[in-house]
């Protein structure tokens, strides 16, 4: 059951990223370019996504366990620390440079575009470096 859910969820995530325009780095950068000729589309991705995700949060609150019997694992940290802010700031610079974030980086491999195959190994090196840095700081 857990694997069926993972497959369905991955399938919806991949289709949603493609249809919404998130898989197109040029469109993502067009959204970030607020002072230029602005494409507000990604605000609508966020809107549509948040509504469904919020319904999920409400449904999860009324359950003692997930449908496959597993414990519902939600991060409960509330502390705003330097790592969070520094990490998010670095992430944003990278996102603005390339127009690609981790979800579309994976789904984009399915487009067979060369750029995603260049992006992925460097992203993995960055993830491992960031993980090391988080432990060291």
């Amino acid at each position: 059951m857990g694997l069926v859910i993972a497959a369905l969820s991955g399938c919806l995530f991949g289709a949603g990223l493609l249809i919404s325009g998130m898989l197109n780095p040029g469109k993502v950068i067009g959204f970030l370019d607020v002072t230029g000729s602005w494409d507000p589309s990604l605000a609508f991705v966020m809107g549509g996504g948040l509504i469904m995700s919020f319904v999920g949060v409400l449904m999860a609150r009324n359950r003692s366990a997930a449908m496959d019997g597993q414990k519902i694992n939600v991060p409960d940290g509330q502390q705003i620390d330097g790592k969070l802010i520094l990490g998010a700031a670095i992430f944003g610079v990278g996102w603005g440079l390339a127009g690609i974030c981790p979800g579309p980086a994976m789904a984009g491999l399915g487009s067979l575009a060369l750029e995603f195959f260049i992006f992925m190994p460097v992203l993995i090196i960055g993830l491992l470096a960031g993980r090391f840095l988080r432990g060291a700081l």
Partner: peptide
């Protein structure tokens, strides 16, 4: 470049994926 319909629809699919993983597997 503006695609409000496709982006809202695609966004809802992304949110539904998150709903499914949370309610279905607790993740």
């Amino acid at each position: 470049a503006f695609t409000p319909m496709a982006s809202t629809f695609g966004g809802a699919m992304i949110g539904l994926a998150a709903l499914l993983l949370l309610v279905g597997s607790g993740r």
